[in-house]
């Protein structure tokens, strides 16, 4: 009888411990949940694909496609006395396809150490170390993987950093010029783009950082791109449009 009495607590002890939730004890959160939201604009208005006709140098323009790679994204803190700010990497690279996502793309659930940051840095395009690889080198779901093979151009041995496509009616009488700018190659990879903004991340709280990309500014900054003369940029010897697009990315992006 004593043996039975001894077995009862042993059984219950096994029952209680064997099915326990291993995740019940969590450390105090030291991170905030950060989202990045990207929205495309055309001047002061949200970009509308296909349907809205925009005025472009007195001609009618419609946009049918816009996407780009964003890379080396990090928050930074200015450190007194230090030459370079201290950086906290958010992610290495992602692909933002506005055409397929109704003009707005959100990257969610980035766990970032709490603190007060002074801004965000990033680049447009694919860094040279990644750009030296092929879609087959990545998992199929990676932004540079074979699912996104339309953004790799073997003839350049480069990824296509961005696609800007649409149509221009040069006379108002359906005299259409199709345009498609596909910048790529290491030479056109953007330098680090730095946007100063105070970002205070509090433990366990959600924070959204909003980006706006003005496509009109991409076309017109530094002088309007002559789309009729340079409707395509698909190869290094047709680089005028590609260079224009990449040169104007930094001034076309605002962060708040």
């Amino acid at each position: 009888m004593k043996q039975f009495l001894l077995l009862i607590p042993v059984c219950f002890l096994l029952l209680m411990t064997s099915c326990g939730d291993d995740t019940a004890i969590l450390p105090e959160p030291e991170v905030a949940d950060v989202s990045l939201t990207f929205k495309t604009m055309f001047g002061d208005n949200e970009l509308d694909f296909n349907t809205t006709v925009y005025d472009y140098e007195g001609m009618e323009m419609t946009i049918s496609k816009f996407d780009f790679f964003i890379s080396n994204v990090a928050l930074y803190k200015n450190v007194e006395g230090a030459l370079d700010p201290e950086q906290t990497e958010l992610f290495e690279i992602d692909f933002l396809d506005f055409t397929q996502n109704n003009n707005s793309v959100t990257i969610e659930s980035l766990n970032v150490p709490v603190g007060e940051y002074d801004g965000i840095v990033f680049s447009i395009g694919v860094p040279s170390d990644l750009n030296a690889q092929q879609p087959g080198d990545f998992s199929v779901t990676h932004p540079l993987g074979i699912t996104n093979v339309g953004h790799h151009w073997a003839a350049w041995d480069s990824y296509i950093f961005s696609k800007v496509e649409g149509r221009l009616d040069t006379s108002g009488n359906q005299d259409y010029v199709n345009f498609s700018y596909h910048p790529g190659t290491d030479a056109l990879f953007s330098n680090k783009i730095e946007k100063g903004i105070s970002i205070n991340l509090v433990a366990g709280q959600q924070k959204t950082i909003n980006f706006e990309i003005d496509l009109e500014n991409i076309f017109v900054s530094g002088g309007a791109l002559d789309i009729e003369m340079y409707p395509d940029s698909h190869s290094p010897d047709e680089s005028t449009g590609a260079e224009h697009v990449m040169d104007n990315f930094p001034s076309s992006i605002s962060v708040n």
């Binding site: 087959g136 339309g150 073997a154 003839a155 698909h234």
Partner: peptide, 12 residues
């Protein structure tokens, strides 16, 4: 190649 890119010769 824009729509039929290597190595699959489609961009799906």
């Amino acid at each position: 190649g824009h729509c039929h890119n290597a190595p699959l010769f489609t961009t799906n």
